[in-house]
């Protein structure tokens, strides 16, 4: 464990917390007799969270962490895996089933089809993998799928003209997590013998590059002190 990996995991954890905080805010708004300014904004505009992306992440974690009961690496790893599995499935549950949270989800804008991402990733995992076993192919599939799972969210952000502050922070934290993982790989490459993982690196690099455009607009909105808006 190095500082980049730890910082990456922590930003990933923070991104999940930001989403849960957002859901909590939407929930707590129900039945209030006084207007809560944040909830009002969240309910008036759609939440801007892509259910498609959240479902893809749930699938990513479910296929990647199949080893949770068979291979023990560390208490830290096991706890983090449980957190990511639990949070991703509960976020999907909230958006689909929770009475109030569901209402803030804009279904008509979030039109990306899972199928277009899942199928190519599955085929690619069957062809390009380190070992042709059930667990290994699914693990590779989870890496490919994670690389592109943010696409429905980025498309939704571009469509939603008014980007909610928390949604912007969420995407920024996810992008930061990926960038820190690349630093972690560079560090490990120079400090650990035989540390070469082409599949992980290339899919991780592709994933980080998808955030480049968002980062550009995120930082320029910070610099100019204006609300984040992506060009149409």
């Amino acid at each position: 464990m190095n500082i980049f990996r730890l910082a990456g995991d922590m930003t990933h954890l923070m991104s999940v917390l930001v989403l849960l905080l957002k859901i909590h805010t939407i929930k707590s708004c129900a039945g209030k007799s006084y207007p809560c300014s944040l909830c009002f904004i969240l309910l008036e505009s759609s939440s801007g969270i892509s259910l498609k992306t959240q479902e893809l992440y749930a699938l990513v974690f479910a296929t990647r962490y199949l080893d949770i009961f068979t291979d023990f690496i560390s208490v830290y790893n096991t706890i983090m895996k449980l957190i990511f599995l639990g949070s991703s499935f509960s976020i999907v549950w909230y958006i689909r089933r929770h009475k109030i949270v569901r209402r803030s989800y804009d279904k008509d804008q979030d039109t990306f089809r899972h199928f277009f991402l899942v199928l190519p990733c599955l085929l690619l995992a069957l062809i390009i993998n380190e070992k042709f076993t059930f667990k290994e192919v699914l693990w590779t599939f989870s890496l490919y799928l994670e690389a592109v799972a943010i696409l429905p969210q980025l498309i939704l952000l571009q469509r939603t003209r008014n980007i909610d502050n928390l949604t912007g922070q969420y995407v920024f934290l996810l992008g930061a997590y990926r960038a820190l993982y690349i630093l972690n790989w560079i560090y490990r490459y120079f400090t650990e013998p035989h540390y070469v993982h082409w599949i992980t690196w290339i899919s991780g690099l592709v994933q980080t590059l998808l955030y480049a455009d968002f980062f550009y607009y995120y930082f320029s909105s910070l610099k100019n002190n204006v609300k984040l808006k992506l060009p149409a």
Binding site: R5, D9, H12, D67, D71, I73, S74, N77, M80, K81, F84, E130, K131, E136, W139, Y181, N184, E192, P193, H194, Y195, H197, T200
Partner: peptide
């Protein structure tokens, strides 16, 4: 020490 896979990451 060789590590065939990066399964120690999250």
């Amino acid at each position: 020490k060789s590590q065939p896979l990066a399964h120690d990451e999250l």
